[in-house]
């Protein structure tokens, strides 16, 4: 069974005037990296935020089903807090809280009621998984703003890992980072997929080709094509996918 399955997913903004996702049907496999590509405004972010119901923070209408482990996350039974614990998110701009490294990572566990004496272990483990521990282990009490953009982004990853998610959503996590920081994050993602299901939006074709197992191409709110990454990049079935990948538009 797929980890995530979309059935007829449509998303409208405003009073239904903007149809941002159109009848998307797609499956996402567990412990794989799925990359979402497509020109600006095609609905990648909207798609990602449909998976943890972050779209609900603004005026939006969602139709269709999103099944995670076979359960429709839009059904009334589903508690959005439990959903967001299970489906973590890392944003485009590193957005650590104005707190210490330690408090940033401990934030999630704390709000979910983890006791204080367990926090040290969780913080250390999460920072290690995010490949940040060695750089910050002596500076845990320092404010997160004093670190580089790449370090801040890995901190945000550690913060997401600390609540023990099963799926992590990345919305262009490297777009504000230099090549070295980007390489570190890519390396990290490849390690993380052993434990987590990863969905990543990227504008960078090489990045999608390098790190992802599956690639989905969106155009104007429609899912044009989705398949194994080598197939999408080497033998795209749709002419529009080919045009986009070869840089003829977008």
């Amino acid at each position: 069974m797929s980890k995530i399955e979309m059935k007829g997913l449509s998303v409208y903004y405003g009073n239904g005037t903007v149809h941002a996702l159109k009848d998307v049907n797609m499956k996402i496999e567990a412990n794989k990296i799925t990359a979402l590509i497509g020109p600006s405004g095609c609905g990648k972010t909207t798609f990602l935020r449909a998976l943890n119901r972050m779209n609900e923070l603004i005026r939006v209408r969602t139709e269709g089903e999103v099944l995670i482990d076979g359960i429709d996350i839009y059904s009334k039974k589903v508690d959005v807090i439990q959903l967001r614990k299970k489906v973590g998110m890392v944003f485009q701009q590193p957005n650590p809280f104005p707190m210490s490294i330690y408090d940033n990572v401990a934030y999630g566990p704390r709000i979910h009621g983890v006791r204080n004496r367990e926090l040290d272990g969780i913080v250390e483990e999460s920072l290690k998984k995010a490949a940040l521990w060695d750089e910050v282990k002596d500076r845990l009490e320092e404010n997160a703003f004093g670190f580089s953009g790449g370090q801040q982004q890995r901190l945000c990853i550690a913060r997401a890992l600390a609540v023990n998610p099963e799926i992590i959503l990345f919305d262009e996590p490297c777009s504000s980072l230099d090549p070295i920081s980007t390489a570190r994050i890519e390396e990290l993602l490849s390690k993380l997929k052993r434990e987590y299901t990863i969905v990543i939006v990227t504008h960078n074709m090489q990045q999608a080709a390098r790190i992802s197992d599956f690639t989905a191409f969106f155009l104007m709110g429609e899912l044009i094509e989705c398949g194994k990454t080598p197939q999408i990049f080497e033998r795209p079935r749709d002419k529009r996918t080919e045009d986009y990948i070869t840089g003829r538009f977008g």
Binding site: N52, R84, F91, Y107, G108, A160
Partner: peptide
């Protein structure tokens, strides 16, 4: 900041 917090399930 708000989004980061809400996305963690707060």
């Amino acid at each position: 900041y708000r989004e980061a917090s809400l996305a963690l399930g707060a």
